[in-house]
């Protein structure tokens, strides 16, 4: 299948890219990895009049820790994370998710920031960012702003990015040695959208209680959701099987999935529960806590 025609721009600076996005407004789309956009264009489901290809922008492929945050530049590919030994050993949640996004070849081209901006309700990075309490850095003609992921994710395929803006970075808090996480996903096969998936990250206090926790679920609503009530149940508590079960049930409560070939509403809701439960058990297990 062949995409419709479009005008192609290849800016050489973020400023230029932002200016182009301002100039063309809704007609324009940013082309980063293109792994969601190009298939949509081949189906002519997406027919943007203008593409702004940011792949030649300098200094956007950085992946570094600074001021307690892991900074992921807009041109960091999924495989940059997947093959990064330090991230793989210390960022348990991110390590998990980096191995199940799309398929191994798509991950060479797809970007973390692009996935967050695309904000597919079944995307893997959004739930991950929710659990990890990530932030997004957005550049516009008026300057730069930083937004908490919960504010960034607005609706299905919709973020808080406005016309004339682009996201330049995602930031994930650096985990300490008492922090762990896990990403649990079921998909019908490699490369399918998730039937349901859960992202979990938690930090244990010295006394073994849960100091901080984030739980995100994806593919079970029109956007990735934070399981806030589940977090509340566990925060400050010593984890037990019963508490985990109760927290997991909160995921099923807020899940409002559309039925499709991947499963009925009931199945997906129950999977949100099962996967949150499994993610919590796995994350705790990685900290030596057996449930």
């Amino acid at each position: 299948m062949i995409p419709g025609a479009f005008d192609y721009h290849r800016p050489s600076s973020v400023e230029e890219a932002v200016a182009l996005m301002g100039q063309y407004g809704l007609e324009a789309r940013i082309l980063a990895g293109g792994q969601s956009l190009i298939p949509a264009m081949r189906y002519r489901l997406a027919q943007p009049a203008v593409l702004v290809d940011i792949n030649k922008l300098p200094n956007l492929a950085y992946l570094s820790e600074e001021n307690g945050m892991l900074r992921v530049g807009a041109l960091v590919r999924d495989t940059d994370v997947e093959f990064h030994q330090d991230i793989q050993s210390r960022y348990h949640l991110i390590a998990d998710v980096s191995q199940v996004v799309a398929d191994p070849i798509v991950r060479y081209r797809g970007t973390v920031v692009g996935s967050l901006c695309h904000n597919d309700p079944s995307g893997d990075w959004a739930a991950t960012a929710i659990a990890a309490r990530a932030q997004m850095v957005i550049r516009g003609q008026g300057g730069e702003r930083t937004e908490a992921i919960d504010d960034f994710i607005v609706d299905s395929f919709t973020t808080s990015i406005q016309e004339g803006e682009m996201a330049v970075e995602a930031r994930f808090p650096v985990p300490n040695t008492r922090t762990s996480g896990a990403y649990e996903k079921i998909e019908r096969k490699v490369g399918d959208y998730a039937t349901a998936a859960a992202a979990v990250q938690l930090e244990l206090a010295q006394d073994g209680t849960i100091k901080e926790i984030g739980i995100g679920v994806t593919a079970v609503a029109l956007k990735a959701l934070r399981v806030a009530e589940g977090e509340k149940l566990l925060r400050g508590q010593k984890p037990t099987r019963d508490l985990i079960r109760a927290a997991a049930e909160e995921a099923a409560k807020i899940a409002d999935p559309n039925p499709d070939a991947r499963g009925s509403k009931e199945y997906k809701k129950d999977m949100a529960r099962v996967l949150v439960g499994r993610g919590l058990v796995k994350a705790l297990g990685r900290l030596g806590v057996k449930i």
């Binding site: 192609y8 290849r10 082309l31 293109g34 792994q35 190009i38 298939p39 081949r42 593409l51 290809d53 792949n55 030649k56 070849i105 798509v106 060479y108 081209r109």
Partner: peptide, 16 residues
């Protein structure tokens, strides 16, 4: 050494 699906990339982006 970077495998890509060449149906999911525009030729112009492969310059260089």
């Amino acid at each position: 050494n970077i495998p890509v699906k060449s149906c999911t990339m525009f030729a112009v982006s492969a310059e260089g």
